[in-house]
Structures are given as structure tokens and as C-alpha cells.
């Protein structure tokens, strides 16, 4: 029963408490009166995917931070069988002239279903971003770790025919994790940003690679 409670409340907790967000963010391009950021993106990350998100800039005396949520799904003819939602944000820790360093932390809830199994996963995505930020453009490097912390397996009848004694349920400790590193760049014009990021993905043991060992994402953001 606890698990169902967690399933319901965990995303809500994350929305309320996470300090920060996910898309390519030009810290230098954010104007004082711009609080809301809405973005759409498309690209390749564990498959061809598309998504959208919303972020809110939280003003404070110490460190600029942006909190937000986003949703993405891979392409395919079955809608909603696979998706990923993230809640979290981004906080800028250091700014020296035009060089800035920020970190991003997000809680992740994702779902995947194929002919044999349905997977539900709670995880985390943490990254550091170091870059050169100007009001009209930025260029940054990022490195992060995407961890699948706990995963629920529910197998379909087709797989039970293959292996009748397969064990359904929550699997822990962590069922997976991938490091990623790459570059991100963006151009800002009035209340709009266009961002591009690309990089490589490595499994957590640094020796094996995922089926698609890279990511690339094009994003468009409107600020108001």
C-alpha cells in the first residue's frame, strides 16, 4: 500500500520542494520581468522523442533558481505507453564575469511498455553546467547522471508463456544508471530562446553503451 501512496504523492512532493528545471537555459538572457518559461523540444534521447515543459523563476537574494516540470515521450504508434516526466530545477551557484556555473536536479517518473513488460520507474537526473553566457547567446558544457532508482515490473501474458515464474514487483536497489556529457548552446531574441544540446551517453559501469549512445535536442522557449 505504501508504494501506491508513494506513486501518488512523490511527484507532488517533488513539484513543491525541488529547488530548480531542465531545458537549455540562458541565465544572461533572462530579464527581470520574465518569470514564466514555456518550452517545447524534439530530438534523440533513448529514441526519437518530443516534449514540452513549464518553468517558473523564483526570485531570492542569494542564488537565481528556476523550478519546473517537463514531459516527453518517444515516437511510435502507441501513444502514452512510454513517457518520461521530470520535476525539479536549476540553480546558479557561481557567476564570474560571463562565466557561470549551475546545477540541475530533477526527480524523474517514467513508464515503458512493450509486448512483454510494463515498467514504472522513479529516478533522478543530476547535472552540472559550466558555460559562457551573454544576453544574446551562450555556450556551455554539461555532465550528468540519470539514475533509475526503483522500478516496478509487471509482465504480460506473452512473457509469462516464455517464463512462467518471472517475478513481478518493485526491484531495488537501482535498476540502472547512465552518465552523460555534452555541450549546449542557445540564442536569445526578445522573449524567445532557441537551444541545442548534444552529447554522449555511457552506462554507469563506463564499459557498456546504451543502444543509442548519444543525445541531441533542439528546444524553443518563450519567456513572459
Amino acid at each position: 500500500m505504501n508504494k501506491y501512496i508513494v506513486l501518488i504523492f512523490l511527484p507532488a512532493f517533488a513539484l513543491m520542494m525541488s529547488p530548480a528545471m531542465a531545458q537549455n537555459l540562458n541565465w544572461a538572457g533572462l530579464k527581470e520581468n520574465e518569470k514564466h518559461l514555456f518550452h517545447v523540444h524534439a530530438g534523440m534521447e533513448y529514441g526519437a522523442e518530443y516534449g514540452l515543459g513549464y518553468s517558473y523563476r523564483i526570485k531570492n537574494k542569494f542564488f537565481p533558481l528556476v523550478a519546473g516540470i517537463e514531459y516527453s515521450a518517444p515516437a511510435g504508434n502507441r501513444v502514452l505507453d512510454d513517457f518520461k516526466s521530470k520535476a525539479g530545477g536549476q540553480i546558479r551557484w557561481l557567476a564570474w564575469r560571463d562565466v557561470q556555473f549551475s546545477t540541475r536536479i530533477q526527480g524523474v517518473f517514467r513508464r515503458h511498455e512493450n509486448d512483454f513488460v510494463r515498467l514504472l520507474n522513479f529516478g533522478s537526473d543530476m547535472a552540472g553546467v559550466l558555460g559562457y553566457y551573454r544576453p544574446q547567446w551562450f555556450l556551455a558544457a554539461e555532465a550528468g547522471f540519470d539514475k533509475a532508482i526503483v522500478t516496478h515490473f509487471k509482465h504480460a501474458a506473452a512473457y509469462r508463456e516464455i517464463y512462467a515464474r518471472v517475478v513481478d514487483g518493485w526491484y531495488e536497489p537501482a535498476s540502472g544508471g547512465n552518465f552523460y556529457y555534452g555541450v549546449q548552446a542557445g540564442f536569445s531574441y526578445k522573449r524567445q530562446d532557441i537551444g541545442l544540446k548534444a552529447g554522449k551517453i555511457l552506462s554507469q559501469d563506463f564499459t557498456t553503451k546504451p543502444y543509442l549512445p548519444f543525445y541531441v535536442q533542439l528546444s524553443y522557449t518563450v519567456k513572459f
Binding site: 529514441g47 522523442e49 515516437a75 557498456t208
Partner: peptide
């Protein structure tokens, strides 16, 4: 095809389960 369900079913799984050598 790049947008095919079959391809994405294969690739999407990598973020849920990773196995070491």
C-alpha cells in the same frame, strides 16, 4: 524507421535497466 515503435521500444529501455559486463 527512426520514428517506429519497434526501434524506440528497444532504445527506451536503456534508461530503466543497465547491465554491467
Amino acid at each position: 524507421e527512426i520514428l517506429e515503435e519497434l526501434l524506440n521500444d528497444a532504445t527506451y529501455l536503456d534508461q530503466f535497466i543497465t547491465g554491467k559486463e
